[in-house]
C-alpha cells in the first residue's frame, strides 16, 4: 500500500473537526439510557474503548519521535492528537449517557493500565520497527472491532454522528499505518531478522510483550461477557494479516511475528498459547491497585468538554 505522505498530511489537515462540531445534547440519548441491559454493558465497554484510543495516542506520540522524515513526524503528531480527540469524543458520549461519575475519569481495566504504564516508561525507547508494526494491530483489532460493535448495537444518532467522524480519521490512520508497515519491510531480511532477534532479548520489550499478550485475551473475554460474538474480533485480527501482507509487509519480521500471534489468538484450541496467556490475564487481575505507580500526567489531559 503506497501512498503520497505529503498529500496525506494535507488531507489530514483539511479534515479536522472539533468536539464543538457535534451537538452533544441532541435528542436520542434515551435510546441508550432507557435500555438498562445495554446501558450496564456499554458503560464498561465505553471505558475500555476510550482507554484503547488513549493507548493508541501515546503510541503515536512515541512514533513521532522516531519518524524518519518531517512529513511522517507531522502526521504522527496529528495522529497522536486525533486519537486523543477520539478518546475525548467517546468520553463526551459517556457524559451524554450519564456514565461518568462526577469529574473523574473512567477506570481502565488492569491490562490496559499495564500497557499504559509500559508505554509511558519505554515506548519512546522502542524503534519504529516495533511500534510501527504493533500499532496497526491495535488499531485494526481493538479500535476497529470495538467501533463496529458499538455502531451495530447503539442507535443513538449522536453516537453515529461522532463515529462517522472518528471512522473517517481511522481510515487515514490505517492508510498510513500499513504504508509504514510496508516501508519497514525494506532492506535485507537477514538484517531485519537479526535486528529483531536483538530487540527480542531486550528486557524492556519483553515486559511490553508481557503487557500486550493478556490485553488481547482480556478484551476477548470482555466482549464475550458483553454477549458479543468473538468472531468480530477475529475478523479484525485476520484483516491485519490480509491488509498488511503486501510483499513489503511480509518481509517485515515483526509483521510475521505479530500476525502469527494473531492467528494463535484466533485459534481457541491452541492451548499452548491460550493456557499461559489466560493464566497471565488471571494473574494480572490479582495485582492490587495500590502496587501500581501513579498514573502519568498525560492521562489527565482527557476531557469530555468541547471548550476549555
Amino acid at each position: 500500500m503506497q501512498l503520497d505522505l505529503e498529500k496525506m498530511r494535507d488531507r489530514i489537515k483539511a479534515s479536522q473537526w472539533a468536539l464543538a462540531d457535534i451537538d452533544w445534547d441532541a435528542p436520542g440519548r434515551e435510546r441508550v439510557t432507557e435500555n438498562p441491559e445495554l446501558y450496564a454493558k456499554l458503560k464498561a465497554f465505553m471505558a475500555d474503548l476510550m482507554w484503547i484510543e488513549h493507548v493508541g495516542a501515546r503510541g503515536f506520540a512515541a512514533m513521532a519521535k522516531k519518524a524518519p522524515n518531517d512529513t511522517l513526524r507531522e502526521i504522527y503528531t496529528y495522529f497522536h492528537a486525533e486519537e486523543q480527540r477520539h478518546a475525548n469524543a467517546e468520553m463526551a458520549l459517556m457524559q451524554r449517557w450519564g456514565m461518568l461519575d462526577g469529574e473523574g475519569l473512567p477506570e481502565p481495566n488492569i491490562n490496559i493500565r499495564l500497557v499504559v504504564e509500559w508505554l509511558d516508561a519505554y515506548a519512546d525507547e522502542m524503534p519504529l520497527s516495533v511500534l510501527g508494526s504493533v500499532i496497526p494491530m491495535l488499531e485494526i483489532t481493538l479500535d476497529g472491532a470495538l467501533c463496529k460493535f458499538l455502531l451495530d448495537t447503539v442507535d443513538d444518532p449522536v453516537c453515529h454522528a461522532a463515529f462517522d467522524k472518528i471512522n473517517a480519521d481511522e481510515a487515514r490512520h490505517l492508510g498510513v499505518d500499513f504504508h509504514v508497515l510496508e516501508m519497514l519491510g525494506h532492506g535485507p531480511i537477514y538484517r531485519q531478522t537479526l535486528d529483531m532477534a536483538g530487540r527480542l532479548i531486550d528486557p524492556r520489550l519483553l515486559m511490553g510483550i508481557l503487557a500486550y499478550l493478556p490485553l488481547l485475551n482480556r478484551m476477548r473475554d470482555n466482549l464475550v461477557e458483553l454477549g458479543l460474538k468473538e468472531n468480530k474480533l477475529y475478523e479484525a485480527i485476520a484483516k491485519y494479516k490480509r491488509v498488511g501482507g503486501t510483499p513489503g509487509g511480509r518481509r517485515n519480521p515483526w509483521f510475521q511475528l505479530i500476525s502469527r500471534q494473531g492467528a494463535w489468538v484466533i485459534d481457541r484450541k491452541n492451548v499452548f498459547y491460550h493456557a499461559p496467556v489466560d493464566a497471565l490475564v488471571r494473574l494480572t487481575g490479582k495485582i492490587p491497585p495500590r502496587l501500581l505507580p501513579q498514573i502519568p500526567s498525560w492521562v489527565h489531559e482527557l476531557t469530555w468538554k468541547p471548550t476549555a
Binding site: 479536522q16 472539533a18 489531559e301 471548550t307
Partner: peptide
Amino acid sequence: RTVEGVEHQ
C-alpha cells in the same frame, strides 16, 4: 481549536 478536538477559548 486544537487537533485533540477542544476549543481553547
